[in-house]
Design a protein around this nucleic acid. Sequence first.
DNA 1: CCCTAGCGGTGCT
DNA 2: AGCACCGCTAGGG
Length: 179
Amino acid sequence: MHPVFYLASIGTPEGDFAVTYSDTGLCALRFPCARKRVHEGSAGLQKRQRSRDPNAWCAWPAKVRRWHAMTAEALQRALSGREPRCLPPVDLSCGTEFQQAVWRALRQIRRGDTLSYGQVACIIGRPAASRAVGSACGANPLPVLIPCHRVLGAGGRLGGFSGGLHWKRLLLQREGKTF
DNA sequence: CCCTAGCGGTGCT
DNA sequence: AGCACCGCTAGGG
């Protein structure tokens, strides 16, 4: 059974986000104007369908269309600093065990809260792996929705952000944090 | 502010 | 197996 991905985009005031669904859930989201392709280099993508093609859109399983509607609403809410009401099922299977452990931890950080990379490392039981936590955050396939922007450097430093620090600042600002 | 050493996961060769 | 990345951190100018 070959993997199937469904590609779409979500328009927001900040631009168009690209999203990808697998047959088990939402699996990737890219910031507007981010050139990097999702799942590049994988053996997958045998079959893919774009929302720009209305016929392809109609051919999407109902469940995926449902997920897409949920994702669009969640993204709008998250971008305006509110907590998403609900998310579609999420497919994080592209990550290693370590990365998935980090991503799970990130999902527990509530709006308006922040942790340091070191604190996340402690939470997942690898207190010396703060640097690796940073790498795992950078590999987060669902930025914004999995709030890697809520992880800061020790001592309240802003730290990094793969998608560009302006996004991190904006997201934190929308959640009432000043940077 | 800078620099350094030490750290752990990941991907490429 | 080795190695060069990295969204790190603590310590010392």
